[in-house]
Every structure is written in structure tokens, then in C-alpha cells.
Design a binder for these strands. Structure first.
Lengths: 342, 342
DNA sequence: CTGAAAGCGCTAACAC
DNA sequence: GTGTTAGCGCTTTCAG
């Protein structure tokens, strides 16, 4: 004898009847069309409020083909995403820009293999007007799944495919990872440092990491490379720094491929009694205020406008949804921000 | 002259025509109903694959009133959520349980005031079958908005209302914050500690923090309380610990209301040259593996089955959606996990 | 400015 | 087993 709690929700028809007008008129009021008498508008609005009427999106969607929602899909390997302020910042940019256009961002996670078909169904089911895709593993099958659905998509970071090549026709937004890394290493060089090591990101997994490492190599073409790979986490950075010190005790500078890892590296350096920047100069990457400004010493790092990148992604997607030809990809420039660590 | 990229997507009708059966039959095949000849099933399946047909959820939803999606809504004050493994863990539990039932979790953030109406519209628009609500500020208006929509809802943590009272009839899942805090402080007492301080959470903002502080007071009814409030962040914990040491240099134990803050507190203690646990015993709260097991020394802390709480929330919501009477709220027990810090 | 009518794509009785 | 028939709640021509 359990009783359903909610009565039938009021429909457009109910509102129409109560206001003594037709459904069309109510619809016009709701959608803010101009050609309705002010008096009628008020009456209808009143009834809507009275009844607590909320439009049924499914019905509306069925005819307009628009949902007002955009999916942000992120693979979440080993919690990385959640603990990295980078994503937080990017997401904020996305949300703000979408909000400006009245669209709701909904975040989906890709975690276990089972998630793929469900997420693909969701994306294909017309729940959203488009999707922003992130941190997919190389060769991830989601891009093609989404392709087949004909859903507008923009990638965060240049997508890495199975064959190591970039998808054609897929719009993406990325920072200038290689150029930024060059700036960082050149700066260290200009400081007179000669034994410059690097803590790289997971360059076999992510383009950004591979590109930053390439930038390091660009500037130091024949130096004996002192490279240690980490996983973009703070702890990973700390461990990699330790390994670097073991392998090259005489290093006098290090380019760390993310601020979060750099924070870890600084901690290791402190524990090992190296002064920063006197003994070892450190440059990070990202310039996330929450990290770079509060490390000890504050971090010299490569700045990316992360929130701006998020906004840009949203804007590209929205434009794509409007059927504007090929939304082109964009690479956002970086610049070095000097603080105390180098 | 921009051209829409995608042709009209195939509909159920198209599939029916191509397979030489009626729409109903195709519908039956799709929804896995038994009473269809195997031969027909195969044929229809073939056509579906050929055409790349994907059901239009809006249409389906319009008649079934089900979406297969559940919203997880979280206020995200000052990035806290994203940087706290607690939420990560909870969310994992939620996602796993929902996935088991074939439902997709979609995460929405409440950040700026503008977000409220949009999120309320989204929730009320029939995009989801229910919502899981988190970390709302006291007196948050979302609960009533959602109430009016008649959307099934379960809260994470006992909801704090404007008048400081708990909503009636709202299901919630919470840890035994007060009891857990008592266990922690009693443990410190049993260790022979007598000057027991506490780093509290934002007790004016969150029930969990208020309850944990109450538990501390329960055990130490007349001791001179050494309480410092922080904001559930690592840095906040570090700062609060410093303040505590300034105010009570002779303290010999501290109960810190979250593992993340405890990690910060340990760092401060180390910097101030206090040995843990010899000089100061430390107990945390949450028992998040990613933190508690990797601090130095490993953290003695109050264990909560966070992932389990997430699963439970999902289960309660699903049950509610099925119209099962009042899904009751549940308080999950805690237990002390001894490691090296106390 | 407003109303009538025709769907959008799907499911669910109900017949056959 | 399978087809027929109504809608679900909304927007959108098209008349008036």
C-alpha cells in the first residue's frame, strides 16, 4: 500500500486552462516571445507560479532537439583528476562559460571498463547537446563511439590515438606544452645552470607530458639527459626528485612538468638539505595559484591560462553545435612567471 | 552556407520499415522483452547495427517517465570538494552502486548564486530520476526547491537548515560523527594524555564538524578546551595546529577532525620539533587510505566506510524512486584504527 | 496578437 | 507473437 508521494505534475495544458488562454500562448510566455499582451503575460506567469509549473524538458527536447546541457567527460585514473587543481580550474572555466549561455554542465566519469557503454548510451541518448572530453587514455575508444553518434565534441588536450596520431577533424584546445617547456629550460640556462634535470609527466600516456619533455630536449639537444618520469601527482614528483638526486647529485636545476609535482619536488629538496634556488633552481608548469604561490619558496613556473582554456573549449563546442563549420583547434600560448624558486 | 554535419538520425520507424516489422516489435527487441521470435530478433538487431540506430531518450522518457540518470549535486565552496579525497571516495561508492543498477551518475556543481535557478531547472526538468545532495550550506534553498519539484532526494550528511534544525522527511546518510569523535578522544585519554586539544572543522557551516566537536566535549566535559577551528583543508589544519601550539605549548595530544587537516597538523608538529606520538599524540577522522597510510607517522584515525556510505545513498535513492514509502535515514558507525600517531 | 492542429519518437494497452 | 492505436507534453506552422 505504499503511496506515490507526488501527484501528477502540472502541464502546459493545465496552465493554459487556468489562465483561459491556449497552450501556444503559454508556450510563448515561457519562451519569452515578444508578441503577447503584457496583461496576458502577467496572468499566465501568475498561474505558473501558483501551480509550481516546470516545463517538461523531455517533451520540449523531443521537438526542439536541444537539451540545454553539455557533458564533461573525464577518465579518472587513480584519482588524479580529483586531486589536481588543474582540472578544477579548467572545469570552472567551462562551467562559467556554459552558464553564460544558459547551459548546464554535467560531469561524467569514466572509471571502470563497464562505464564505457553506459556513458556512450548516455551521450548518444540525446541527454546533452555536446560533450567535452578529457584525459582519455591513448587509443581510447570513446572518441569513435561519440563520432558515430554525430554529437558535437571538443577535446581538452590534443587527443592521443591508438596509432599515436591525432584524430582528424576533432577540435581540441591545448596549451603550448612544448613551447612552454622550452621557455622554462631556457630560463634555467640563462641563470647559468648547467646540470639541468627534469621530472617528466607520464609521457607514454599523455601528449602534454610528451610535449613538455620534447621541449626540454629541444633546448638541451646534446646534454646528458637527466630525466625521471612521474605521474603528475605530488608524491610522484617527490619520489622522482629523490631518484634524480641519487642519479645526479651534482644537478643544479630541475624543470618539473607540473606545479603539483614541483611542490613534491621542493619538499624532497628541502629534506635532502638543498637550498632552492641557491643549490637547485626549480621551474614548474601550469601556474596554479593555489600551489605556485604557496610553496616555499614560491614557484617560478610556466603560466597557462587554465580557466581561459576551459572557457574556450565551451565556446568552441557551442559554436560547433550551432552548425558553424569546422570549429578549429587552438593552442594557447604560455609565459614564464618568475617567483623565487628560479 | 554552413551545412549541418549530421543527417537526420534513424528512428524506430526506420528500423521497423527496414526490418519489415512494426514499431512495437522493434521496441520489444530493444527492451529485451521475451515474446519475439529469435529469427526476428536477429534481423532487427542487424538493421539496428546497420543504421547505427540509437533510441531517442527524450521520446522514451516522455512516456516512461524514467531517464536512467541520477544527479549528484555538490556545493563547491573554495575548491574544497575537489581537493578532498573524502568526496572522491564517496562519489566512487555512489557511481558504483548506480552503475550496478544501470543508472548513470551525473555531477553538477553549485558554485555561484546564478547556478541555483539553472540547477533547479535542470533537476525539475525531468533530466534525472533523482538527486543526491551534498555539502549544502546551512539554510541552503536547494532542498525546498527540490521538494517542490517532487524529485526523490537523499542527502549526504545531515542537512543543516536555516533554523539549525534538520529537515523532516528528508532521507540522509551520515557517519556517526559524534560517536567517532568520542572514540578518538577516549583513546587519547586511555593513552594517559591529559592536555588534549582539537582542530575542529567549520562547525558553524557543517553538521559533521559541529558533531565531531560535540563528541570531543562529551568526553572532556570540564577540561579547559583547547579548540581551534579550521576549514577542512590541509593548510587550514597546519595553521590551526600552529595556533594551538602557541596557545597551549604544553598540549600532549590533539584530535583533528579530518585526515586531510591531520596531515597538515603533522607537518606543523614536525616543523615545530614535536615528536609524534611521543610529545604529541594525534588522532584524525575519516581513515582515507590515500592520506592516513602515507603520513609520517601513519595516522591513527576514526574509520568511516566512506565508499559504503556512497553506495548506501544510491541505494536509498533508488528505493525511494520505486515509491517505497519513507526511505529512512541511516547513521553509519565508526571505529578507531590504530596506526603510529597515537 | 492568439488559437487550432500537426507532429517530435517512443511505449503500452489492447486486439488479432 | 505481432500489429494497431493512443497518447506522453511540448513547439511550431498556419490561419484568423
Amino acid at each position: 500500500m505504499t503511496q506515490r508521494t507526488h501527484a501528477r505534475r502540472p502541464t502546459l495544458e493545465d496552465v493554459a486552462r487556468r489562465s483561459g488562454v491556449s497552450k501556444s500562448t503559454v508556450s510563448r510566455v515561457i519562451n519569452g516571445e515578444a508578441k503577447v499582451r503584457a496583461e496576458v503575460v502577467d496572468r499566465v506567469r501568475g498561474v505558473i507560479a501558483d501551480l509550481g509549473y516546470v516545463p517538461n524538458q523531455a517533451a520540449r527536447q523531443l521537438v526542439t532537439h536541444r537539451t540545454g546541457a553539455v557533458a564533461v567527460v573525464a577518465a579518472q585514473p587513480e584519482n588524479r583528476l580529483f586531486l589536481d587543481p588543474f582540472f578544477d580550474c579548467l572545469l570552472r572555466g567551462i562551467r562559467r562559460e556554459l552558464a553564460r549561455h544558459g547551459a548546464q554542465a554535467v560531469l561524467l566519469f569514466l572509471d571502470e571498463p563497464d562505464d564505457y557503454p553506459r556513458v556512450a548510451d548516455y551521450l548518444g541518448g540525446g541527454h546533452v547537446d555536446g560533450a567535452l572530453l578529457f584525459s582519455l587514455r591513448p587509443g581510447d575508444r570513446l572518441p569513435e563511439m561519440v563520432d558515430r553518434l554525430g554529437l558535437p565534441v571538443v577535446f581538452g588536450g590534443r587527443p592521443l590515438l591508438r596509432d599515436g596520431d591525432t584524430v582528424h577533424g576533432h577540435a581540441y584546445v591545448d596549451g603550448d606544452n612544448r613551447g612552454g617547456a622550452r621557455q622554462a629550460v631556457q630560463h634555467l640556462l640563462s641563470l647559468g645552470r648547467r646540470r639541468i634535470a627534469t621530472v617528466a609527466g607520464p609521457y607514454d600516456q599523455e601528449h602534454s607530458a610528451a610535449d613538455r619533455l620534447a621541449g626540454y630536449r629541444d633546448v638541451l639537444p646534446d646534454a646528458p639527459h637527466l630525466v625521471e618520469k612521474a605521474d603528475y601527482t605530488r608524491q610522484g614528483g617527490a619520489d622522482a626528485m629523490a631518484a634524480l638526486l641519487d642519479r645526479g647529485p651534482d644537478l643544479d636545476a630541475v624543470f618539473v612538468a607540473s606545479d603539483l609535482m614541483a611542490a613534491g619536488a621542493l619538499q624532497t629538496l628541502r629534506e635532502r638539505g638543498r637550498r632552492v634556488p641557491q643549490d637547485v633552481a626549480v621551474v614548474g608548469f601550469d601556474d596554479l595559484a593555489s600551489i605556485a604561490e604557496s610553496t616555499d619558496p614560491p614557484l617560478t613556473t610556466v603560466h597557462q591560462d587554465v580557466e581561459g582554456m576551459g572557457r574556450l573549449m565551451a565556446r568552441l563546442l557551442l559554436r560547433k553545435g550551432e552548425g558553424v563549420a569546422e570549429a578549429s583547434s587552438v593552442v594557447v600560448p604560455t609565459r614564464l612567471v618568475r617567483r623565487a624558486s628560479a
